[in-house]
């Protein structure tokens, strides 16, 4: 991390070594070849749909990571400091989620529950039915639970890792339990979890295309649609990979900013 303290010009020079210029030239050559020799005429026709797909992917990512994190906090807390009757279910939940493929969880929720609906006719009269009919609530639920399962494990370690002395000091100051949690325990645990949070969020992004298998139209589904309707195989996939690379870049950048804003001196 010493590079950060160097002047910009020095950093640029140390990054732009001669071989890098050569590699960049090769990369640029590949991009130009791809642009000239491959078929991109479909882009204009699917542009609007692609933007909508990107927007949906980001929406699902943001909603499920936020909800998943909110769920991960009690899961982590229950495992790190909760009584047995809370710790055990939380642990079982995390183990099951982490031990089975997300694709299977998603299909179980969508098609498995769907297969049970005809046996319970009252479900169709209930007020939840308009939501149960659609696909996105299942996608959001499955991805939220998955994120909570993985992040719950991380939060367990983070809560357990906060030095006991800090909590004891807070208690000595006469803070209430809620205040200790809010002011001392939670912020420190979050800070400890932050580096893994970035990684988990990228993994979550990489899990979002699975929702296309239950009819949610995200950016992956749009690319599949292009492939199916035009029979062009590689071009949509290459562009899709580029879209995910860009979103990953943005996530990593945002988390770096976030980490830099929080002072890193831990007690």
């Amino acid at each position: 991390m010493t590079a950060i303290s160097l002047p910009v010009s020095v950093r640029a020079r140390s990054w732009l070594k001669p071989h890098r210029i050569a590699l960049l030239a090769v990369a640029a050559g590949l991009v130009v070849t791809a642009a000239l020799t491959m078929r991109w005429d479909w882009l204009a026709r699917y542009w609007d749909l692609a933007l909508l797909g990107i927007w949906r992917t980001i929406w699902i990512l943001v909603v499920t990571t936020v909800l998943g994190f909110l769920l991960a906090v009690p899961l982590g807390l229950a495992q790190a400091a909760g009584p047995r009757y809370l710790a055990l279910p939380a642990r079982v939940f995390c183990t099951v989620i982490r031990g089975t493929p997300l694709l299977l969880q998603l299909w179980l929720l969508y098609y498995g529950l769907g297969a049970l609906f005809p046996q319970f006719p009252w479900i169709r009269q209930s007020e939840l039915w308009p939501y149960l009919r659609q696909a996105w609530p299942y996608a959001v639920l499955a991805l939220t639970l998955s994120y909570a399962g993985y992040e719950g494990e991380v939060m367990r370690g983070a809560f357990a890792g906060v030095p006991r002395g800090q909590l004891e000091a807070a208690r000595a100051f006469g803070m209430s339990r809620w205040k200790i949690f809010r002011r001392i325990w939670m912020p420190q645990a979050t800070h400890r979890a932050l580096p893994t949070l970035a990684g988990e969020t990228v993994l979550q992004l990489k899990a979002t295309p699975l929702v296309a298998t239950i009819t949610v139209i995200d950016v992956y589904a749009v690319a599949s649609k292009v492939r199916q309707e035009t029979f062009i195989t590689y071009e949509p996939l290459l562009l899709l990979a580029l879209v995910y690379l860009t979103i990953t870049g943005i996530i990593v950048f945002l988390f770096r900013r976030l980490e830099a804003r929080i002072p890193s001196r831990l007690g």
Binding site: G114, A115, F117, P118, R133
Partner: peptide, 11 residues
């Protein structure tokens, strides 16, 4: 088959 399944599910 999945479309049939969702028809039976009422979706």
């Amino acid at each position: 088959d999945e479309a049939n399944q969702d028809l039976a599910a009422g979706r």
